[in-house]
Design a protein around this nucleic acid. Structure first.
Lengths: 230, 230
DNA sequence: ACAAAGTCAAGAGCAGTGCTCTCAAAACGT
DNA sequence: ACGTTTTGAGAGCACTGCTCTTGACTTTGT
């Protein structure tokens, strides 16, 4: 049994090493990285990789799950260090963590928030890692609402047809937030990933030089829409 | 000279035909479409394509420019049909046109607003087509400001370091808009493309069913931040 | 202790890719 | 009509993802 564990452990290490190498190659070739190149760098032959990943897509899926988790954890850790009562601080800190991680790992960010890979369909096990950031944001909304510091109704009225979607969403996450507040939360969510994506994908090149100020302004503006006071 | 025109015209038609075929292949293979497959479908050999495009990247550039122009034109045409005094209507109409085009041409949209193609660097001639939508939005801001219906200062205060960027931007576009208003315009811009990207790239799957209501709500909310009254 | 079962890396091979080069046949300007 | 330019075809290079087979090694059941 201990012997089997050894083999299992070696296998796990090898798997991790392949992923690490692939992650490095991601920077050069994006989503269409070369399995053969990864194998070559690891001093093995391409067919050997298929012992660990059934296909290139499966390798990609592993990288995607890892990326979602890394991003989620970065946001969670940063946000957890902020005083629970400081709602605006929690929001801004989470935003900065997302942006920071994205700028540090632009190619992994592109993998999860960029254009979908052509033939690739994300399997179900990417969903929980993917929802870590949304869940985090929803938690801030929840706390603010419970404390009576976030109004349910405010700003643009929420269209009737949209409310069931929002109610189902709040239920799915397991956090109770009124649909009207959740709708504003999604505005902030769009604003966050819109800003990060534009910066990472180069849409801000030759447009905005002061990236930090710009991001800070946009996230504070989003917070204002939600109703988070400074 | 007329003879030369014939050859030139045939060449132009051939170029257009290659692009059209490539556009079709874009749907299946995304940014890494196959030159050979395109050639095969056109009944020619792969090397013949190099008479029209020096490389795959150059073909991609042509597709990118076309996509930016198509999107820009769709937005401009729709917006132009709205009463000039109806600022909110102009904004919402432009937004709907952008979303509509993106949903009709998801793969072309991914090409211009998705993750940047790995080895590819966008040449300078993509800039003017790319700025058609931003210019359009800026025009609405300008008209509203001139008419005294859009306040310069409102909402979140704009950080000092950001102002030169915004001033330069307004100058570059050739449309006079106060930096504070332009900052809110960029909020709306982020909101627009954040919403469209999330929908086209599948981030809203199993999250929002009522896409139209959701989009409408988000764009009205963005308009409110800018200061566009209904 | 030893054979059976399982696991692994390697190599050959298939069909495909972007791209370059050469060569013959058109189309063109004069 | 003649020399130039443009065009398509074909062969070829180095590369890709992936499959299948082979031989060596390790783990397991008895």
């Amino acid at each position: 049994m201990t012997a089997a564990s050894i083999r299992a452990r070696v296998r796990a290490e090898m798997t991790e090493e392949i992923k690490a190498t692939a992650r490095r190659h991601l920077a050069a070739d994006g989503a269409n990285l070369s399995l053969r190149a990864v194998a070559r760098e690891l001093g093995m032959v391409s067919s050997a990789i298929y012992r660990y990943f059934a296909s290139r897509d499966e390798l990609l899926t592993a990288l995607i799950v890892d990326a979602y988790n890394a991003l989620g954890e970065a946001a969670e850790r940063a946000e957890a260090a902020v005083d629970r009562a400081d709602l605006l601080g929690r929001w801004l800190t989470a935003c900065r963590a997302v942006r920071g991680w994205a700028l540090e790992h632009p190619h992994e960010y592109a993998l999860i928030y960029g254009s979908p890979v052509p033939g690739y369909a994300a399997p179900a096990d990417t969903v929980p890692p993917a929802s870590r950031v949304p869940v985090l944001i929803t938690g801030i909304l929840h706390d603010g609402f419970q404390a009576g510091r976030l109004a349910a109704d405010q700003g643009e009225p929420v269209p009737e047809p949209l409310r069931p979607d929002l109610a189902a969403l709040s239920e799915e996450v397991g956090v109770e937030v009124p649909p009207t507040l959740l709708a504003r939360g999604m505005t902030a969510w769009l604003q966050l990933f819109g800003a990060v994506s534009f910066e990472v994908f180069g849409q801000l090149n030759n447009v905005i030089g002061e990236r930090e100020s710009f991001f800070e302004y946009q996230m504070r503006s989003a917070a204002r829409v939600v109703g988070l006071e400074g």
